[in-house]
Amino acid sequence: MSGGTLARDVQRLMKGATAHLSGRGRRGPDSGEGRRVPRRHSYDEADPRAKPWARIQDGSVAAGLAHREAMIATAEQLYVEQWRKFPLAEVRQVRAEREAAAAELEELAARSPAEVPVGRPATLRQRLKDLDQHLAEADRRLHRIDVTVLKALLSFLDFSTGKLFPAIESIAAKAGCHRNSAIAALKRLKANGFIDWVRRTTMTGNEGEFAPQREQTSNAYYFDNRRRMAKRTWLRFTQILTAKLRRLGRVPAGQAMPPTPDPSVPQARGSMAEALASLGAALSRAST
């Protein structure tokens, strides 16, 4: 071993020992609560990809509040609709039916081919596929806590910039629930198109020390409602939002389903017809 290599190894060990004794090199858990290790598809907080936000409506408090209230109202209506479509008793019955079908298929697989009724395994496999699809859709339905978490999340929204990156712990504290409940709610809200997010990382300040140099930080949340929401949910959201903005006298040009203007008739600048003709684009920009 050369003298230079030995010197570097000694220096590295001394840095590690110093960091350990001072507590600066202590590493957080790799998974679960308090996770700090950077996850895949994460971007540095200074990276443009970690800044997905866009101004909400015209950036004013009044229009921003209308946007927030419309989103919450849409979530509340969807919650009621989904639980009417997938009542708890019915979901339990479907789960029981799936378990019975899976058990029968397993039992048939243990028999000799001559003992298996013709076509029965194929019938059971198709039935299991249909039941799994039904249960997957039921599992995506919003819960009451999801609406509460959405309200909590949106309370951190900066209307003028669209910036939204509270920590999970802050969202949970605002919603009055456990951290794990907040995480589950955010996942269901994402599955229903209300929110999306980008994972971010930040430097630890441990440069030159025997310790992690980068760790996970809070997600950057944003809205891509027009693309991610189901069409029916999106239309409901735009209708509620347009009604609220009209009451404020702040209708951004247009509405969710504007009438097609006659191109042969020029529209006066600033007219209601001109405003209605471009609302779809404005709502799309507000939802990215």
Results as ranks from 00 to 15, higher is better:
residue 118 V to F: 04
residue 118 V to A: 14
residue 120 R to C: 13
residue 121 P to Y: 04
residue 122 A to G: 15
residue 124 L to Y: 13
residue 125 R to G: 09
residue 126 Q to P: 01
residue 126 Q to N: 14
residue 129 K to Y: 07
residue 130 D to R: 06
residue 131 L to Y: 03
residue 134 H to L: 09
residue 135 L to N: 13
residue 135 L to F: 12
residue 135 L to W: 06
residue 136 A to S: 15
residue 137 E to D: 14
residue 139 D to Q: 11
residue 139 D to E: 14
residue 140 R to M: 04
residue 140 R to V: 10
residue 140 R to K: 15
residue 141 R to Y: 13
residue 142 L to M: 04
residue 143 H to C: 13
residue 144 R to N: 14
residue 146 D to K: 08
residue 147 V to F: 13
residue 148 T to H: 13
residue 148 T to S: 05
residue 149 V to R: 09
residue 149 V to A: 07
residue 149 V to Y: 06
residue 149 V to I: 11
residue 151 K to N: 11
residue 151 K to Y: 01
residue 152 A to W: 01
residue 153 L to N: 02
residue 153 L to D: 06
residue 153 L to M: 04
residue 155 S to Q: 07
residue 155 S to P: 02
residue 156 F to Q: 05
residue 156 F to C: 07
residue 158 D to I: 03
residue 160 S to E: 10
residue 163 K to V: 11
residue 165 F to P: 00
residue 166 P to C: 09
residue 166 P to R: 10
residue 167 A to R: 13
residue 167 A to Q: 15
residue 168 I to V: 13
residue 168 I to C: 07
residue 171 I to R: 03
residue 173 A to P: 00
residue 174 K to D: 01
residue 174 K to V: 01
residue 180 N to M: 10
residue 182 A to H: 13
residue 183 I to C: 09
residue 186 L to R: 12
residue 186 L to F: 06
residue 186 L to M: 08
residue 186 L to H: 11
residue 187 K to P: 08
residue 187 K to R: 15
residue 187 K to V: 15
residue 187 K to G: 13
residue 187 K to D: 15
residue 188 R to W: 14
residue 191 A to G: 00
residue 192 N to Q: 12
residue 192 N to C: 03
residue 195 I to R: 06
residue 198 V to G: 00
residue 201 T to Y: 04
residue 203 M to I: 04
residue 203 M to W: 14
residue 204 T to E: 10
residue 204 T to L: 04
residue 206 N to H: 09
residue 207 E to I: 11
residue 207 E to C: 01
residue 208 G to S: 08
residue 208 G to E: 00
residue 209 E to Y: 10
residue 209 E to R: 08
residue 210 F to P: 05
residue 210 F to I: 09
residue 211 A to V: 03
residue 211 A to H: 04
residue 211 A to D: 09
residue 211 A to S: 13
residue 214 R to V: 08
residue 215 E to G: 08
residue 215 E to F: 02
residue 217 T to D: 02
residue 217 T to Q: 08
residue 219 N to H: 08
residue 221 Y to S: 06
residue 221 Y to M: 05
residue 222 Y to H: 14
residue 222 Y to F: 15
residue 223 F to V: 05
residue 224 D to T: 00
residue 227 R to C: 02
residue 228 R to T: 07
residue 229 M to G: 03
residue 230 A to W: 07
residue 231 K to D: 07
residue 232 R to C: 06
residue 233 T to M: 00
